[in-house]
Nucleic acid binder design. Structure first.
Length: 280
DNA sequence: TTGGCGTCCTGGAGGC
DNA sequence: TGCCTCCAGGACGCCA
């Protein structure tokens, strides 16, 4: 499940390969990818565009063209962007959803087993509003302060885990890094968000940033489908503190990690380090 | 306005 | 061995 660290790893891997290159041929093989716009129309619009920059906001990859138009890519659950120079074993892959031939003869292949991913071609004036309507604070920039996080949590009776998964509150955090951040902060995932004290919000901010930075440093977490742009696996899954570790001892206190359901998602936490009620 | 649930989608695991 | 059911989850729409 690509979250912020995985998307950032893909972005960093593709940036030197893509920037400055012209899209010579674009094949979109899955009509779902560009819904509601016809894929043939999007492909035709993309051909001839030259890449000016490759950015990221939350879990979105932002391909900026010299024309100032933007291709917004979301990998959702199982999307992969793979760079191939020469013969690729993916040539006959059943899960290829799009193939982009660059003007140096190399390919960028979009693969997506569950077909949730999306490609959207936006005009220059559409991007800012599109992202502003969907995304909250970017957690790794200086402006993501404890005050900003407290504002995102304020008035929310929902479990803090659910609020962290809401991209309109905090951009880029998904199920894995929400659990890891809450463990680092010592906060139970079912605590109502608005009940967190100021010191807990500060700890949560530090936990979010530390978990995401660890993920980037390890090139993301490969549980099943995620791969970097060169097809290799991330190693963050070897560093998980709680995610997917039910019944295994907590690294801090040795208490077995428990699994519950929060916000409709599998959720792992340490019942001792992350008490249901805050310490008096 | 808020929170919870269903939907989309497919591969893999487990049970029979 | 083959079939069936359940589970995984990001974003979005719908409903209470």
């Amino acid at each position: 499940m690509p979250e912020l660290p995985e998307v950032e790893t893909v972005r960093a891997g593709l940036e030197p390969r893509l920037v400055g290159r012209r899209l010579e041929r674009v094949e979109i093989l899955d009509p779902r990818l560009t819904r509601p716009v016809e894929p043939a129309g999007v492909a035709a619009e993309l051909e001839g565009e030259r890449v000016a920059a490759l950015g990221r906001r939350g879990k979105y990859l932002i391909v900026r063209f010299e024309s100032r138009r933007v291709l917004l890519i979301h990998l959702r659950m199982t999307g992969q962007l793979l760079y191939a120079n020469g013969d690729s074993p993916l040539a006959e892959d059943a899960h290829r959803r799009a193939v982009v031939r660059l003007d140096d003869g190399s390919d960028v292949i979009y693969r997506d087993v569950r077909r949730f991913g999306t490609w959207q071609l936006l005009e220059p004036d559409e991007l800012d509003q599109y992202l502003a309507e969907r995304l909250g604070g970017e957690p790794l920039i200086r402006a993501f302060t404890s005050k900003r996080l407290a504002e995102a949590l304020a008035g929310r009776r929902a479990p803090v885990k659910a609020v962290l998964l809401d991209q309109r509150r905090v951009a880029g955090v998904g199920n894995i890094y929400a659990d890891e951040a809450l463990w680092r902060a010592g906060i139970h995932p079912l605590r109502p968000a608005a009940e967190l004290e100021a010191d807990e919000v500060a700890a949560l901010r530090r936990g979010i940033r530390a978990a995401l930075r660890a993920g980037i440093a390890r090139r993301g977490a490969t549980l099943s489908n995620y791969r970097t742009s060169d097809g290799s696996r991330g190693t963050m899954q070897e560093e998980f503190k709680v995610y997917g570790r039910a019944c295994q001892p907590c690294e801090r206190c040795g208490t077995p990690v428990e699994k519950i359901r929060a916000a409709g998602r599998g959720t792992w936490y340490c019942p001792l380090c992350q008490p249901r009620s805050p310490a008096p």
